[in-house]
Computed example of a mutant assay.
Amino acid sequence: MSPTHFISIPVASPGITENLRKFQDLCGEKIHPHKVQYPSKLHLTIGVLKLFSDEEVQQACNCLSEFSAKIPPILCEQPLHGTLKNLRVMRGDNQFVKVMYSEFILSDDSDRLQNLADKCLEFFVERGFMEYQYNTTAVKLHCTLINTRWNNAGPRTINASEILSDEFELQIFGNCVLDRIDLNEMRADKSFVAENDKRYLNVSCVSFK
Results as ranks from 00 to 15, higher is better:
L44G: 04
L44F: 02
T45R: 12
I46R: 04
I46K: 04
I46V: 15
G47N: 09
G47A: 07
G47W: 04
V48I: 11
V48G: 03
K50I: 02
L51S: 07
L51Q: 10
F52E: 14
F52G: 13
D54M: 08
E55A: 09
E55T: 09
E56C: 04
E56S: 13
V57D: 05
Q58Y: 08
Q59G: 08
A60Y: 06
A60W: 02
A60C: 15
C61G: 08
N62F: 09
C63G: 04
C63R: 04
C63F: 06
L64N: 02
S65R: 14
S65T: 11
E66H: 12
E66Q: 15
S68T: 02
S68V: 05
A69M: 11
K70Q: 15
K70H: 14
K70M: 14
I71F: 11
P72R: 12
P72Y: 00
P73R: 06
P73D: 07
I74T: 08
I74F: 02
L75P: 03
L75M: 11
C76T: 01
E77I: 02
Q78W: 00
P79A: 01
L80F: 07
L80H: 06
H81Q: 09
H81P: 00
T83V: 10
T83N: 09
K85D: 06
K85Q: 15
N86F: 05
N86G: 07
N86E: 14
L87G: 03
R88W: 02
V89P: 00
M90W: 09
R91G: 00
R91N: 12
D93G: 08
N94A: 13
N94Q: 12
Q95R: 15
Q95T: 15
V99K: 10
V99S: 06
M100K: 10
M100F: 01
M100W: 04
E103S: 14
E103A: 12
F104N: 03
I105W: 01
L106F: 03
S107L: 11
D108Q: 12
D108H: 12
D108W: 13
D108Y: 11
D108M: 12
D109C: 10
D109Y: 10
S110H: 06
S110K: 10
S110R: 06
R112V: 01
R112T: 07
R112E: 01
R112F: 02
R112M: 03
L113N: 03
L113D: 03
L116S: 08
L116K: 06
K119N: 13
K119D: 10
K119P: 01
C120G: 05
C120F: 05
